Simulated scan of single mutants.
Amino acid sequence: MPKVHKFLVGEKVGMTQVFGPDGSLYGVTVVKVGPCRVAYTRTKEKDGYQAVCLGFGHKKDKSANAAEKGLAKKIGIQPIRHLREFRVNDLSGAEQGQVAGVERFAEGEYVDLQAISKGKGFAGGMKRYNFRGGPASHGASDRERAPGSLGSRRSLGRVLPGQRMAGHMGMDTVTVQKVKIIKIIPQEQLLLVNGGVPGAKGITLCVTSTVKKVPKPPVVVAGKKGKKDAAKPAAKKPAAK
């Protein structure tokens, strides 16, 4: 797979702490991102769009259906557990069965990570949307955590769609953007990224090169001094009397 295709599929291992090259201590999330296989490609002529599908992980034959077994037989591997498609502008160089690993990224690079967040179950309005609740005094004995009025009036006589209220919380597709890669361990196919990542341990992640603007490294020109480094003018001596 060409190196311009900077995307991988992996799973969240957990969190730990590491020291960066500058000596700073970082809280990092450990992500295992390989090896991934190119399961198949999508073309404009046949499918209407261009994409590369990567597979990550394996499962037993008895747990796979006929389609998964047929795809694995074409590639010559065990049935694939996770499949994810990534849209691309150019398919040249991408072929079925190719292997992609952590070497696609470098330390200090910024990536976007997408996963399904942790499920919180059925939650009230205060936990789900940060409602402040009702008064705790003046005769309000059971209104402390109530959502309040739903905004229904005589002219409508109904609750409008999208009204914020209690309901199922979590289990959403969440993307964190512009996350810095602190360290790469190529022997174990591990990425150590700065901060937290959505989802519980073992959740499937999609790692792509960030779409955000990244800070440019400072350019130091030899022979030029900044304002702080510029020589200060010598202090004037008092005139002789």
Rank of each mutant, 00 (worst) to 15 (best):
A146S: 14
R153H: 07
G167I: 06
T175F: 07
G157N: 01
T173A: 15
S149A: 13
V111F: 04
E109F: 01
S155F: 01
A146F: 05
S152N: 02
A136G: 14
T173H: 11
S149N: 04
M126T: 15
M165I: 03
R132G: 15
G148D: 02
A115M: 10
H168D: 05
M126P: 12
G148I: 08
K127T: 15
S137W: 04
G125L: 12
D172H: 15
R153D: 04
D172E: 15
L160I: 01
A123W: 03
G125F: 13
A123F: 01
G170F: 08
G124T: 11
L160A: 02
T175A: 10
G157S: 02
M126V: 15
G151A: 06
K120R: 13
P147R: 04
G162N: 00
K120D: 12
G134T: 08
R153P: 00
P161H: 00
E107R: 09
L113D: 08
K127H: 13
I116L: 12
G170T: 08
L113C: 07
E109S: 03
P135C: 02
P135G: 08
R158W: 01
Q114W: 04
R164F: 01
V111Q: 03
F131G: 09
R158I: 01
D172C: 14
M171R: 14
Q114K: 15
M169R: 05
S117E: 13
R128M: 12
F131H: 10
A115N: 12
K118G: 04
N130T: 10
M169T: 11
D142M: 06
G133F: 06
P147M: 09
E107Y: 05
G157F: 02
Y129A: 13
L113R: 01
R128N: 15
N130V: 05
Y110E: 02
K127Y: 12
P147G: 09
Q114F: 06
A166L: 06
S141R: 07
R154A: 12
L113H: 07
S152L: 05
S141N: 06
G124N: 14
G108N: 04
Q114Y: 05
L150S: 09
A146I: 04
K127S: 14
D142V: 08
P161S: 00
M126E: 15
V159Y: 01
Q163K: 14
M171N: 15
M165V: 09
L113T: 04
L113M: 10
G125S: 15
R128T: 14
R145L: 10
R128D: 14
G134A: 10
R128C: 12
S137N: 11
L160N: 00
G167W: 04
A136R: 13
E144W: 13
D142H: 11
K120G: 06
G134D: 10
E109W: 00
H168K: 11
S149T: 07
G151L: 06
Y129C: 10
S152I: 03
A115K: 05
E109L: 02
A136M: 12
M169A: 11
A115V: 09
